[in-house]
Each structure stands twice: as structure tokens, then as C-alpha cells.
Design a protein around this nucleic acid. Structure first.
Ligand SMILES: [Mn+2]
Ligand SMILES: [Mn+2]
Ligand SMILES: [Zn+2]
Ligand SMILES: [Zn+2]
Lengths: 135, 135
DNA sequence: AACTAAATTAGAATAATTCTAAAAGAGGGA
DNA sequence: TCCCTCTTTTAGAATTATTCTAATTTAGTT
């Protein structure tokens, strides 16, 4: 059962399995919509909004999901982060496109050189507009 | 006078020159602190907080400054964006380091290929920790 | 089955940001 | 320089996404 896998993911990160966490994680894994807490709550309406927020915070803490806080709608968007990837944002529609066709190693090395830090992760957003749009 | 240059920048972007706008723009150009609206208001206390927000919005709209909304402090940080650059964030201290030692052209090309969009800009944050820190 | 630390919940609280609508100012033309 | 008009500024109220509280339930273990 698919349930098994979800439990494993949670346990591998030291999180207890509750049906709330299983539902929310599954929701994020199966939706490409980069939803907000409210959007998730609309669909999983049996789970309290406080739990939605608590769970999302936990999933972010352990690195299963990430936050995208760059859209102009003043809401946090969440994203399952099974594999590292970057985002392309269509400024006309605010659509977020996942992409991974770029090797970040040279960028990590550049950042290490400048800062002397141990690089642990990245957050890349590329903005674009529909090519046919005037201007 | 330095005033002249600031006026020119505002006018070049179609913004009227007010002493509030000149002050805020100069503040951002001369501080590396990536301040919040509140931090700016603390230092430029003659300017109302509403105007700080209004002005920052305008400067963002015309592209003179950018917003960094990724820190865990739940506040927007602002950054003079005279030249394109990326950010390295020390996760131990939340310090934001400016860097420009990386050519984004290949990344732009990768994004264009995936999305078909006309790429207009980017927002890159690289996270790191002090190398001596345990773990 | 019983235990206990952790998770969930409803609702209140917080606070960054936005809005309102009235007063002041900038810039252009006469 | 003096209007004129549109834009900007402002104090304070309003909004609202998110966080907090404290009581209840549950997961995982013994
Ligand atoms: Mn935010
Ligand atoms: Mn907020
Ligand atoms: Zn994504
Ligand atoms: Zn910067």
C-alpha cells in the first residue's frame, strides 16, 4: 500500500505518523500546484488549519518540503522537495514551473569561494514572461 | 551634489522626487544591511511608516530595489539592486552576503528551454553554515 | 491495556502590511 | 512667479496570514 511509503518517509525523518501528516504529505507529493496552507485546508477540510500549519512547519524543518515566499500574493506556498530543483515563475500568470536541468555545483563553488561557508542548499527562481506578450 | 544623481535615478524611472524618496533610496544605496521597512523607519524617523512602505513598493515596481522574503523572521527585507547579483545566506546568523561571481546566462538558457518563456530576471539564494560549526 | 510524550484542535492573539481619506507637495504651464 | 492638477504623504484604522494557548486526543511503546 502507498501508505507504507509515506509512513517510511515520515519515520526516516523522525516524525510520528498521523493521518493528518500522511494526508498532507501525500497531498503535496501528488499536486504540482505549489499550494498555500489555505489551499490545502480547502481540500483536506477535516484537518484543522492549525495542524496544517504545524505539519507544514515540521515538514519544512526536516527538509521534505520547501517554502516559496516570492509570489506577490502574500501567502506562503509549499512544495514537495523530493529532489532538488529550481523554479521558473511566469510573471504573467504566477505559475510556478519545476525544473532541474541545471547543475548547481559551479554556483555552489562560487558561493563557497566568496563566503567561506559550507553550502547546504539553494533556492533559485527564474522569472519570465510569455514571449508573445507585448513588451 | 550627490542629490543630483538620486533625482536622476528616480526621474529615469518616472518617479517624482520627494525628500522621502531621495532619503529612502540613498539609505538603501549606502547600507549593506538589507533592512526591513521597520529598520528604515527607525533610522529615517521623520518619514511615516506608510510612506516607507509606499516608497519601497514603488522602488520595487520600477526595479531599483528587490525584496528578499526568504528569511525566517517574517519580515520583508529590501536590497538596492544597482547591479544584478545573488545572495548567500549564513543560516547560523541570517546574514545576507551579496555576490556576483557567477554567470547566470547558462541558467537563463536552461530556463528558457524548459519553459519557453522570455527570461526577465532571477532571484538566487545560496544557504550555508559556518564551516567550523559542529554538524 | 496502560503510560507518556507528542500531536491535534478551536479559538484568541499577534503583527506585518495594507487601506482610507484628508492634507501637503511636485512639477508643468501660463 | 503663481496657479492648477495630479501625485504623494500621512495618521490611524483595518486586514489577514500566521502564531500562540491550553485543553484534548493520539501514537508508539512497555
Ligand atoms: Mn512573507
Ligand atoms: Mn503577515
Ligand atoms: Zn518545486
Ligand atoms: Zn543584495
Amino acid at each position: 500500500m502507498a501508505d507504507k511509503t509515506l509512513r517510511d518517509i515520515l519515520q526516516a525523518h523522525g516524525l510520528k505518523s498521523t493521518f493528518q501528516r500522511l494526508s498532507i504529505l501525500e497531498y503535496l507529493m501528488t499536486h504540482e500546484t505549489h499550494p498555500t496552507a489555505e489551499m490545502i485546508h480547502d481540500d483536506l477540510s477535516d484537518i484543522s488549519l492549525a495542524t496544517i500549519y504545524n505539519t507544514l512547519d515540521k515538514l519544512v524543518d526536516v527538509g521534505i518540503i520547501i517554502v516559496i515566499d516570492t509570489l506577490k500574493d502574500d501567502k506562503r506556498h509549499y512544495d514537495y522537495y523530493g529532489e532538488p530543483h529550481y523554479h521558473i515563475i511566469n510573471s504573467n500568470t504566477n505559475e510556478i514551473i519545476d525544473a532541474d536541468n541545471f547543475d548547481v555545483a559551479p554556483l555552489f563553488e562560487a558561493a563557497r569561494q566568496v563566503s567561506g561557508l559550507n553550502i547546504t542548499g539553494f533556492h533559485i527562481e527564474i522569472y519570465g514572461v510569455d514571449p508573445d506578450q507585448a513588451k
